[in-house]
Structure formats: structure tokens, C-alpha cells
Design a protein around this nucleic acid. Sequence first.
DNA 1: GTATCGGCCAAACGTATGTTTGAAACGTTT
DNA 2: AAACGTTTCAAACATACGTTTGGCCGATAC
Lengths: 206, 206
Amino acid sequence: MSQSDTVERILDAAEVLFAQKGFAETSLRAITSRAGVNLAAVNYHFGSKEALIQAVFERYLTPFCLALDAKLQELEGQGAVDLEKLFGVASRLALGSHGDEPRRAMIFFRLSGQAYSQPQDHLRAYLREHYGAVFRRFLALLRTAVPEVPPMELFLRVHFSLGAVIFTLSGMESLQTISKKDFNTDVTAARITQQLLPFVVGGIRG
Amino acid sequence: MSQSDTVERILDAAEVLFAQKGFAETSLRAITSRAGVNLAAVNYHFGSKEALIQAVFERYLTPFCLALDAKLQELEGQGAVDLEKLFGVASRLALGSHGDEPRRAMIFFRLSGQAYSQPQDHLRAYLREHYGAVFRRFLALLRTAVPEVPPMELFLRVHFSLGAVIFTLSGMESLQTISKKDFNTDVTAARITQQLLPFVVGGIRG
DNA sequence: GTATCGGCCAAACGTATGTTTGAAACGTTT
DNA sequence: AAACGTTTCAAACATACGTTTGGCCGATAC
């Protein structure tokens, strides 16, 4: 049929496996096997493995960035912006813009971490190309929230924050393992992400 | 001769290439070719590619952790510790404990980022096993510096900080590229790492 | 009913990888 | 100088990968 779900199945499988083992360590065979489709389907529908990687990002990032952009535009009309509120909005959107499970958000942050740590040049360029505008919009709004921080430093600190977030959500399980071992406490992922907010706010203020 | 420098040449080449392209994407042939040694030398001297990866980490981490441990012990004897000072010591040690070039430190942080983002389970286990003690010592000292932050939250925030540092130093070049493009300013790596300190301190305090 | 077309499939292709092999080269010891 | 253990080397090995191929199926159009 013309309305096959093969494409979606491949994207679902690829998303999970890429996040779990990285891009290079995940073979097309592992993806198609998990998706229950034929090996050749990837090259048929996407053209290449590289194109599949981009497609995975696009499927997640496009809805998120649209939602964020709308929210930002809404906030811009309300004059002065509060720092906590701005990050709160972004965080809630990142974790919940895909309706169902925050699990997908975690998966996606793991992906982002790998996109940055591995110098997949084509990927970085692609991300900047397509989603750079929203980021700049966010930065501009942030500048009005903390006018006392020089723009350049602010830019850097946002980057630092991004690192903290991505790194944390990337290694969530290992973080939980360690905290259980060293503190004998079970920590929910929600608790950890919740702790992230005051850290970021404190860091941005300096 | 029995004191060949082949091992060192391999480690040097592997360190650079792993940081540049990741573990999986770097072939033994690329490493041995850069090192100017025979392909079989890696398996002869290290046993396997996986063992080579561990050896790269060990060569860097062991001197650093020894130096850090000594410094921490020294600080423990001096009673109350200042937050800025504690992180300053760690940072100066991380960037300069290898005498010569801070370039090596950057390379190594890129490696660390990949060690975390990619779930190289054996690597994470190895690192925790061998260097976990120093980390706990650091954490204990940190607790005396900011007694107002509950231990569990402090632990998380240290992890967040680690994320910011690793993420930043991992993507240093791309960060410089972006800042040049968006702000028309050249930023030195030293400047960026310098900005990192107030961010971390602010974040830890919350 | 048959032609057409997009999607699917098993199988094969070429290539790159980590590893192993067996002999040559070298330094040291006897 | 002969024997030995260690290091180096070119070559081959087995395997896993991304990609391509050519035929098959099923639905839609004529």
C-alpha cells in the first residue's frame, strides 16, 4: 500500500538504538531487525544511513521547535521575562511536547549528546541550518531576562547549560545507578530534571 | 630494543584520533599509520582495540588523579575550604597537570565526553573502579565548602557541572566557530574555560 | 484482464574492519 | 659466533558492514 508504516517503524527503531549504542555502533541490520522490516528498506526509503540519522532528528526536532517558537513569540508580547519562567517553559516543552512519554525526550537528549560529541559534521551543520533561528530567538529573549550579563558571556553560559542538560539526560541511568550505590537512595528521572532548573538558573546568573 | 617507543607512539596517535573521530570511527589502520608503526603492533602490545582505549585513558588519568589526590589531602588539612578555590585547584590541575600543553587536556575532555555519551560499558566501569575514590574525596571536601546544600543535591550539581565542562571542552572548536559567526568575536579557549568557573560556582550554589 | 507502479524481499556485492599468522630482523646473552 | 627471546613486518583471514540488484507481490488504472 501507499500508506505503509515501514518508515515510522524504522524511525522508531533507529531512534532507540542510536541513543543506546551510538550512530556508528548501530548497524542497519540491527535497526531493520528490530523494526521487523527488510534490510533494504532503509536505503529504499531514506537513501543512506546518514540520511536516516538526519530523519530521526528531524522527526523529533521539528515539532519541538515549532512549539517553542510559538511559545517564545507569545512571551515576547508580554514584556519583561522571568529567567525561571523562560527556562521552565523550554524545559516543559522539551520534556512534554511529544504528548506521551518523557522517555522519548530522554532518548532524544542522548542522541543530541552523541551528535555533539561525535564530530558528525554534516549533522551539526544540518541542525544549525534548520533550527538555529529558534535558538537565536531564545537567546534574544533570555537577554532581556538577565540584562546584567554581557551578551557574549550569556551566550557561553547558555552553552554550558546545554552541556549540563544533555550530559545529564544522556547518562540518566548511570546517574541513577551511582546515586543508588553511593547514597542508597532511589532518584526518579523527574527529580533529577527538576534539580536541573535551579542549577542552570544559578549558573546563568553567575 | 626492549625499551621501544612504539607503545608511546601508538598511544599518542590513538589519543588524538579517538578525540577527533570517536572510538568506533577510528580504525587501527588509521592509528598505526599516523604513528608510523605496523598494523599488528597494536594487537601485539595491547592485545585488542578495547584494551588500547583503556590504556589511553589510563596514561592520562593516573597522573592527574594522583596529583589531585595529593592536592585534596593538602587542602583537607587546612580546615574550611573555599568553593572557588576548590574548583580553581581542580581546574588548574586538569588543564596543567601534564606540564606542557593545555591542548592535551582538551583532547582528553573530548575523550571523556565520548566515553560517557557512548555507552562503552566496560570503560565506564573501569573508570569508576580505578578513579572513583578520588571523586568521592573531592565530593566530601566540597561538602564542607557548601554545607548549606544537601548532599544529594550537591552530588547532582557536581554531575551537572561535569556535564557543562566536558560538553564545552568537547565542542570547543565548534563553539569558537559559532561565536565568531554570531558575535563576530574571536574567543580563545582560555577565555572560555575561564568563564566556566563562575558558571559552575553559581550553579553549585543554586 | 492486463498493464503499471510503488513497495517489499532474499541474495549478493564490494569494501573496511579487527585480528592472526609465520617469518624476518634485531639485541642480548652465553 | 651461536642461540635465544623480543619486536617488527607483510600478508592473509574471517567477519560485519552499507549498499545494490533483480525479481516478486498487490493495488490501482485502463
